[in-house]
Amino acid sequence: MSPTTSAPIIDIEGLSLAYARDGRTNVILDKLDLAIPRGQFLVIVGESGVGKSTLLRVLIDLAKPSGGTVTVNVDPAIRTPMALVFQDARLLPWRRVLANVAFGLERLGMPKAERCARAEQMLSLVGLGDLGGRWPHQLSGGQRQRVALARALAVEPEVLLMDEPFSALDSFTREGLQDEVQRIQQKTAKTVLFVTHDIDEAVYLADRVVVLAGAPGRIAADVTIDQPRPRARRDAALVEAARQLRGELSRRSADL
């Protein structure tokens, strides 16, 4: 059966996750339901420790849920339905930039020349076309994050997962990269799950913002932001949406 376009590309139902610690179980996520339509730019916000990274780790199979199901509706022929951009770029220091970008392609049985060509192309896409020959330690933090983004894009995932990818960067670099991600997402029409602490970043990028709150974490708010793109950072509607989300977040944490 080929996936229908109307079905959500990711359908999370009753997802729970608990860690055993000191003989007690520590429930991080509790019966989470979330359906993500194809092509949506979904931003997840929430306090530190609420389980945002854990959710992404479950999706990409780095963590096993203790209950519930995750359905991913993609063509089974696609070997890398998802790719993850980590908060700290996590480039492999012994590979040059180009080889880092090509990393995920080495599993796909692609000839070397083609891998290089694809990696070059992705590097240009993130604006680092001429840095392919450098070692990771010769890059700035922002450049490293771009390489991590290119590495994730290179495998042509259906869903791009990004875990606070820009939180360690200065605001100037961060805004540049936000625009970059927005442009790439517009161009490739990929589904994006983007985790952030930054409410302004969330409303600027998102089609939809989901607030995770509480212990165990649940969805406390689910807000659609349907401002047309390209957006202006100081757009009144976005500022208003951010104000409401902040209110929501502080109300939720006051409740606990």
Binding site: I60, L62, R79, A83, R90, F103, V155
Partner: peptide, 20 residues
């Protein structure tokens, strides 16, 4: 963390982990 990178990109067998 670097081993997780390999896993996230689908290199999950011990041999792939070793080589990559």
């Amino acid at each position: 963390d670097l081993i997780e990178v390999a896993q996230a990109f689908g290199f999950r067998s011990p041999l792939a982990r070793l080589a990559k």
